[in-house]
């Protein structure tokens, strides 16, 4: 029984293969005859349409380093990365990731060996999504040799902060200064206030965590 089915399958398979290769052969011959004898010889040469390919540089990517003052926990180094997209000459959207580490509260320093937070919870990580506006475009003149374009911008957005084992909804507002060394390399100076509600030290309050940093970005 089984061999009969196998034979049947083989026969059908063989037939299909023959049909398929046969039809391929047939269409190839027809195609060949068409190609060798064109019915109408085109008289107009086809117009070459130039593909306009202009290098668009609306994205800006970079790294930054600076200081973050974590409320009640002192000031420490912060570093991170940012990616921005320039929507118009004025408006840009920015995504940033930053990392810092909290120091000791004054209570911890004074009391000696009391620790409010274990070391692994002192890591401060944030990300944010912000909208910026280039408020004051300008130029900077350094001696009579160099002129650089610059922009003073206002920026604000929302994000999340991971600190002391909690994720907190964070609002950031700030301002920055972008100095364009060339068309595609920029220096940034940025001042930002990261605000979130925290009940870490007993009562719930809005903490202000001020950050200032310098950064280098590339447009692409």
């Amino acid at each position: 029984m089984e061999t009969r089915y196998r034979h049947l399958f083989l026969a059908v398979g063989g037939l299909l293969t023959m049909l398929w290769s046969g039809s391929g052969l047939a269409s190839e011959t027809i195609g060949e005859s068409l190609r060798s004898e064109p019915i109408i010889q085109p008289e107009i040469a086809r117009r070459e349409i130039e593909d306009i390919d202009i290098d668009e540089e609306d994205f800006e990517v970079g790294l930054f380093v600076g200081f973050l003052s974590i409320e009640d926990f002192g000031t420490d180094v912060v570093y991170g990365a940012r990616l921005a997209y320039h929507v118009t000459e004025g408006i840009f959207m920015e995504m940033a990731l930053g990392r810092s580490e909290a120091g000791e509260t004054s209570y911890e320093t004074l009391s000696g060996d009391i620790q409010l937070l274990p070391d692994e919870d002192r890591k401060y990580t944030y990300y944010n999504l912000s909208l910026g506006y280039n408020l004051l475009p300008g130029e900077v003149f350094i001696s009579d040799q160099f002129t650089f374009n610059s922009q003073f911008y206002l920026i604000g957005g929302i994000g999340s902060t991971h600190f002391a084992g909690n994720d907190e909804f964070t609002v950031n507002i700030g301002a920055g200064y972008r100095l364009l060394l060339t068309d595609w390399v920029a220096l940034h100076l940025d001042l930002r206030d990261h605000m979130f509600d925290s009940d870490l030290l007993g009562e719930e309050k809005t903490t202000h965590n001020l950050e200032y940093h310098a950064g280098l970005t590339l447009f692409f």
């Binding site: 202009i54 290098d55 668009e56 609306d58 320039h86 929507v87 118009t88 000459e89 068309d183 447009f219």
Partner: peptide, 9 residues
């Protein structure tokens, strides 16, 4: 034309 940024060339 060297490059484009937003609506500027």
């Amino acid at each position: 034309i060297l490059k484009r940024r937003t609506d500027w060339f």
